[in-house]
Each structure stands twice: as structure tokens, then as C-alpha cells.
């Protein structure tokens, strides 16, 4: 009755409310934890001590170089056809504007195909605003990640983006973006749905729109750490079942949802098992990835460092899409793997977390490892509101629910335990 023992201990027993309380203490103490900052390193030290306080001492940190991009003052003002200040968030690693800012007319496009319909001379010297309507994150995030490079290739002087979210109360959403070699680097920022839609309406009426954009930032590199907590297996200690979340966050909000919740349910796995004295056959490794937000930097470093031992990863799990009520797992692997996980998920009928979603590239950080052939899964949860808060000042403890975090921690722990303990390795 191992699964029920874990569920009871976490949901109604001694551990009830602990995940929420520990997450709240963490995010209230440190707030946002951007890559390359001292506060991120302090938060890593805090997690190490918190783990030691649970009498779990098999902890390793692995250093790597991470970006340290720091946001300075940012303003966006519509000058024509009327004066209006607009909320914005510069996108990750964006270059700065001149001190006086960039003042230019805008062109509004809803896709790269629409951008391509304009000649280079139409775009040259303009600010391009991408305003795709949110469908799915995967479909629309390309305008955030590639928009500046594609606009610059046609001669634009700056790139703006309708925030990648289905819902807004005038909240801009940060996020990463990437420049291309041999293309000028231009400032890139996200604006709110409300302002993007206002600009679209004015633009569609054929009126001239002139904006002034000021963005300042610094960009250098620092050393950070991935943190590995091992809960040693009894029979096959070299074999790993990895549970993970990232410890860094954007520089807005508290990073409570992204990815504080994922961090703390993954931290809870060895803690709960240790408290219950449940020892699986294989080792459970809880990883706190660093520098996810600026491009999966920690996961890429881990994959490179541990490439020769990748065969020992039996299964890899990540929670980075919310820790709302768990529904099951989004699983990458062959048919046999998915059948084994499907059988394991049947153990979670009592909490309605039995759904297996087929996903060839689940998660964010773990996608780096899954694409090398390692089977894995991300937490499938009731996260329909996730992108309302994603990368905004609204990503705070208020997003989190104590009971749902209990359900998530219990599910995550029990699922990892069963995968780590069954007699059969998860097949490749």
C-alpha cells in the first residue's frame, strides 16, 4: 500500500500543507531569482540547507556559466496620434536603445508571413509590432523568441510583441528571445494585450502611429549551480529516476508558479520518502535546474557533463507548467514505456490523476535530455490559467493553492517511487 501511504501522509497526514508553507517561506524570502544574480545563489544555498535539515546529505552542486542580464529603466510612449504611456517588459537579453530612445513609426503584423509581404523599404527604420492572437504557447511563442531577429533582417529598428497570454489586466509578459548571427541586434519588448489591440485598431484605420521606446539593460556572465539531491536506491543505485524543476525565475513577480511549485514538489520527493523510510530499488535524483529562463542553460550543461552516463537515467520527470491539481503525466517514450506509465497512473484514481498524455517533447529543461532518447514525463495538471500569470508581476504565492500543492507533491512522490522501485527498467 505504498501509494496510499504516501497520498495519506501528504494530503491528510503530517505533511499536509508543508509544500505550500515551504514554498511561501522560500519565495517570500528571496522573491524573483534571475539567472546570474546573487539572490539566485543565496536561494540555492537555502535549498541545500533546507535539504540537510531533513537529514538528507547526498547533495552535489555543479557549476556552470550563466547569463546575467539585468533590466534597467524601460518606457514606451505613443506620441502620435495621441500621447499614451504603455506598459512593457523588455525580452531576455535584449539590447538597449540610445539614451534618447528610439522614435519611429510602427508596422503591425500578426505573423511572419504577413511581415514577409512588406518590402524591406516598408520596414526599414520602423518598429515592428507582432500581434498574433494566443492560440497555444507553442504556436505563438515563436514571435517572442524569433520576432526581433526577423524584423531586424528587414531593417526594423525595434520589435514589439503582443504578450504571449490568453488573458490580461494590462500585464506585460517577459520571456526569452534570441538574436541571429549576421543580423543587427535590435531592442525587443512585450506589451500588453490591451495596448497591442489598441495599436492594431488605430493601424487598421490607416492612421500613422509613432512610438518612443527607451530600454536599458546590462548583460554579462556569472557562475551558477545545478543542485542534485540523491536519495540512494537499494538494489540499483547507479540507475536514476530524476524529478526536477528550475530554481531561477524571471525578474518579475516571485516565481512562485514558474517554477517555485515545480521546484518544491521535486524537493519534496526525497524528503517525503525519507520521512516515511521508503527506499526504492533505484536512486531518485531531485535536480534544481539553474538558468532555465534564459535558454535551458542548466539542463544543457547537465546533459553535456553527464552524457556518458545517460544510459543510467531510467526515467526523467519535470514540473514546469504549473502545480495546479495533478491530472496525470505527459509522457515521451515508446509504446511499452507509455503502457507501464499508464498502469502506474491507475494507482491514482483516488485523486483523479490517471491521465496519460502522449507528448514527444514534454517539459522544458528535460526536453534537452529526452531528445537524446531518454524516456520522461512532465506533470500534466489543471493549468488552464497558467499563462495568465506566466512571466508577469502576477506570478506570486496568490496563484498557488495549498491543497493542490499537496496533491501534486503526493502524486509526484508516489509516481517517482513506483517508477524507481518496479522490477523492470523503463525501456528505451
Amino acid at each position: 500500500n505504498v501509494v496510499n501511504e504516501i497520498l495519506n501522509y501528504v494530503i491528510v497526514g503530517e505533511y499536509k500543507g508543508q509544500t505550500y508553507n515551504e514554498l511561501a517561506k522560500f519565495v517570500d524570502k528571496f522573491g524573483a531569482r534571475p539567472s546570474g544574480t546573487e539572490v539566485l545563489e543565496q536561494s540555492i544555498d537555502y535549498m541545500i540547507q533546507l535539504t540537510r535539515d531533513e537529514n538528507i546529505n547526498d547533495i552535489t552542486t555543479e557549476e556552470l556559466t550563466v547569463p546575467h542580464w539585468t533590466r534597467g529603466e524601460e518606457t514606451l510612449t505613443m506620441l502620435e496620434p495621441r500621447v499614451k504611456n504603455m506598459a512593457l517588459l523588455g525580452l531576455g537579453r535584449s539590447v538597449t536603445t540610445p539614451p534618447e530612445g528610439i522614435t519611429a513609426e510602427i508596422v503591425v503584423v500578426n505573423s511572419f508571413a504577413e511581415l514577409d509581404k512588406y518590402s524591406d523599404s516598408d520596414i526599414e527604420g520602423k518598429i515592428v509590432l507582432y500581434d498574433p492572437i494566443f492560440t497555444t504557447y507553442g504556436e505563438t511563442v515563436q514571435y517572442r523568441s524569433q520576432g526581433a531577429a526577423k524584423a531586424a533582417a528587414k531593417g526594423a529598428v525595434a520589435s514589439l510583441l503582443r504578450s504571449i497570454t490568453p488573458f490580461s489586466i494590462n500585464s506585460p509578459h517577459a520571456g526569452s528571445q534570441y538574436y541571429e548571427e549576421n543580423v543587427p541586434k535590435i531592442p525587443a519588448a512585450a506589451i500588453t494585450l490591451e495596448d497591442a489591440d489598441l495599436l492594431r485598431r488605430i493601424y487598421s484605420r490607416g492612421e500613422k502611429i509613432v512610438l518612443n521606446l527607451k530600454m536599458f539593460s546590462t548583460d554579462n556572465s556569472r557562475i551558477s549551480r545545478n543542485t542534485l539531491v540523491d536519495y540512494k536506491g537499494t538494489e540499483k543505485p547507479e540507475k536514476l529516476v530524476i524529478v526536477s524543476g528550475h530554481i531561477d525565475s524571471w525578474d518579475v513577480g516571485q516565481g512562485a508558479m514558474d517554477d517555485g511549485g515545480g521546484l518544491f514538489i521535486s524537493w519534496a520527493v526525497p524528503v517525503i520518502l525519507n520521512r516515511l523510510n521508503l527506499k526504492p530499488r533505484r536512486t531518485i535524483r531531485s535536480i534544481f535546474w539553474t538558468a532555465e529562463e534564459l535558454g535551458l542553460i542548466g539542463a544543457k550543461a547537465y546533459e553535456e557533463k553527464h552524457r556518458s552516463e545517460a544510459d543510467n537515467i531510467n526515467f526523467i520527470m519535470e514540473s514546469d507548467e504549473g502545480t495546479f491539481a495533478p491530472l496525470g503525466l505527459a509522457v515521451a517514450g515508446n509504446a511499452e514505456t507509455r503502457c507501464i506509465i499508464k498502469e502506474i497512473l491507475k494507482l491514482f484514481k483516488s485523486i483523479n490523476a490517471t491521465t496519460l498524455v502522449e507528448d514527444d517533447s514534454p517539459g522544458s529543461d528535460i526536453a534537452v535530455i529526452i531528445q537524446t532518447g531518454v524516456p520522461g514525463a512532465s506533470l500534466h495538471n489543471d493549468n488552464s490559467m497558467y499563462f495568465w500569470f506566466h512571466h508577469t508581476e502576477g506570478d506570486t504565492m496568490n496563484v498557488e493553492d495549498e491543497h493542490e500543492l499537496d496533491l501534486g507533491a503526493a502524486f509526484w512522490t508516489a509516481a517517482a517511487y513506483v517508477i524507481a522501485d518496479i522490477s523492470k527498467d523503463i525501456p528505451r
Partner: peptide
């Protein structure tokens, strides 16, 4: 999407493993 019906999984992973997994509940 939800995949693989039980009869397919029974063939793929076998009754013994299914029973072993069920024993964890």
C-alpha cells in the same frame, strides 16, 4: 491524447508486470 488500450498494453508489458504495479496501491 490518451493512448493504448488495456488489451494492447497487456500484450506489450505482460500480466506479471501489471500485477506488480497494481500491488503498489
Amino acid at each position: 491524447k490518451v493512448v493504448y488500450k488495456d488489451d494492447v498494453c497487456n500484450v506489450l508489458i505482460g500480466d506479471d508486470l501489471i500485477a506488480e504495479i497494481a500491488s503498489y496501491e
